[in-house]
Amino acid sequence: MSAPTVPNLLRAHLHDLAINNSRLDGRGQFEGREINLETGILPRAEGSAKVTMGNTIVLAGVKFQLMTPYPDRPNQGGLMCSCEVRPIAGRHWEAGPPSPESIELGRVVDRGIRESGCIDVDDLCIIPGEKAWQVILDLHAISDDGNLFDAFALAGIAALRSAIIPAEKFEVGEDSPLKVSKKPIMCSYHKVGGRFVYDASYKEELGGDERIHITLGDDDHVHSLQKGLKGIFTADEFAEIMEHAKQRCAELRELMN
């Protein structure tokens, strides 16, 4: 992504809106866009999901490969999360090697899923020291109108939950569903016009400042945090969005059932 030009008019406008507790599309400070989640939509993937949040659309696909376990962890398989934001997703995304932005996206989503322990890597072992499953979660943006983080995280965990281990194809037993024991959910907040808002649109991201991503697991356990971009926030601000995140994550967890 090339450094975007931020129109001063947009920043000023976002500031005015914030004073009146309003947003560009009329949403409340902590109001999210309508979310639609579909699973099992990619014929060639072993697990898949599509998330639509307003005009943001992402796909997640799960593939399996056989791997040799690492010598220091002979009883474990692997989980890899890879993210690509290609030029299809918006005019501000360019072709070429992965940008720092897309690498950050992939890594933050990966941490939330990995650290929640929702996938037991010991379960992925087939023959200790010889053969294990590597689960690869590929995140692919189709349309970026802001908050790819939350869309990717939701699509990612939903795709994993729909995945079937293709043991028959690799001739190592019978196909079975991938065990995913928890539902880590990410909520992202952007400082726009001087206050944090939930689920920012692309324009709000463009004319806003720092952002904070929170991934909460079942029982509100915190699994990953990330502060991105230039900006300063207070402990009180963080406490406020954390409160909202707890409530919102619970709602989104329901969406997956």
Partner: peptide, 16 residues
Amino acid sequence: AYNMAPFSTTDRIRPG
């Protein structure tokens, strides 16, 4: 820019 998504085929395609 033509690109095949990593999950578009039977065996995963490495991005890049």
